[in-house]
């Protein structure tokens, strides 16, 4: 163990020190140039490593992925649109798309609604109560999806009939004299997918709450006051005065959660591994790439995911440009 820790420290120092040395050398090189050239080269010395990292780890692989999506399983020969035709006519993949659509329709909206509700209510507590309840709701945000899935075993766990139940849900079933249910295997009305969504929502509501609470607090008091003087009730004030003013934040939260849901992988992989009709794009992609070793299918799936994300991407860039114009 001691050797392992020593190696760890050396690896960490080596990695970080190496990065620092690279910048020092790059700067020295740029400074060794004369006059105008120094000014021209220096920005590239400063921004170069970042640009390189993005180019090598995101842009170049994305292009190669598109290329692979038109090639066979081992990426040795082009097959045209065969991969796309195969996956889009495969009924199990269509089911995967439908499951992902369920996640997209249900999860971001639920997260926003719950976050908005908690934010509005917690703001009315005394500062100490507000801080405590917010920390509790926010805490799962720090927990990994694998950790969250492990935690929720204490609720969803199933033991065969006749043996003591160790999950809360099945203990409740027992209390009412019902047989224990293997929840992850219950795909009627996609009930098991819903249970997985609850785990994900549990980790995300805090994020929505914090952002929305900050936005609600910055709503000018006099606009709320004006509404009150005009005789609006609390409900009316919330929907007609507060909500429109925090709408930008609602969209930000919605989109962030939406992106997280579109590529969701961990929760499904850890709990059901895509079984019992709970599979999603991210899990299927992992399966095609790593288990099935089919680069063609895996790449085609990712390209479909990228296409689905394009509208979000356009929104993001537009939003950024509008913000820059206000700067």
């Amino acid at each position: 163990m001691a050797v392992k820790i020593l190696n760890a420290i050396l690896a960490i120092i080596g990695g970080i020190g190496g990065a620092m040395v690279i910048f020092w050398i790059l700067n020295k090189l740029a400074e060794s140039l004369k006059g105008k050239w120094e000014d021209r080269i220096k920005p590239w010395a400063f921004a170069g490593p970042a640009i390189l990292a993005i180019a090598v780890y995101l842009i170049y692989p994305a292009i190669v992925t598109i290329q692979y999506s038109f090639a066979n399983a081992t990426s040795t020969a082009y097959v045209g649109f065969k991969n796309y035709k195969d996956i889009l006519t495969d009924s199990s993949f269509l089911q995967v798309l439908f499951n992902n659509l369920l996640w997209i329709v249900i999860v971001p909206a639920m997260v926003v609604i719950l976050g908005l509700g908690v934010a509005t209510l917690a703001d009315r507590l005394q500062p100490r109560g507000e801080k405590m309840s917010k920390t509790v709701i926010f805490l799962p945000m720090a927990i990994s999806m694998v950790g969250a899935a492990t935690i929720w075993r204490s609720v969803y766990d199933y033991q065969p009939k006749g043996t003591p139940q160790t999950g809360v849900l099945n203990a409740i079933m027992e209390l009412f004299g019902r047989d224990p249910v293997y929840w992850y295997g219950t795909d009627k009305l996609h009930f098991n997918s819903l249970l997985l969504m609850i785990i994900f929502i549990w980790t995300q509501v805090g994020y929505a709450m914090v952002l929305l609470s900050a936005a609600i607090k910055s709503v000018p008091e006099d606009t709320v006051e004006a509404g009150r003087i005009d005789g609006a009730g609390e409900k009316r004030i919330f929907f007609s005065i507060i909500l429109p003013q925090v709408w930008g934040t609602v969209l930000t939260v919605f989109i962030t959660v939406l992106i997280g849901v579109m590529k969701i992988f961990d929760i499904v992989y850890v709990t059901t591994n895509g079984g019992f009709n709970t599979d999603v794009i991210g899990r299927r992609f992992y399966f095609e790439m790593f288990t099935d070793n089919n680069n063609g299918y895996a790449s085609a799936i990712v390209v479909l995911l990228m296409i689905a994300i394009i509208p979000v991407l356009i929104y993001q860039v537009r939003h950024f440009k509008a913000e820059e114009a206000n700067r």
């Binding site: 021209r40 780890y57 692979y68 995911l305 990228m306 993001q316 860039v317």
Partner: peptide, 28 residues
């Protein structure tokens, strides 16, 4: 720093914020 390119590059970076890293995994 004054140089050409940051504006375009920064828009690319903003766009990449929403791209899932799965796009890079097969080639990597």
């Amino acid at each position: 720093m004054e140089w050409r390119g940051p504006d375009v590059m920064f828009v690319v970076i903003v766009a990449l914020l929403v791209v899932p890293n799965q796009v890079a995994l097969v080639p990597l």
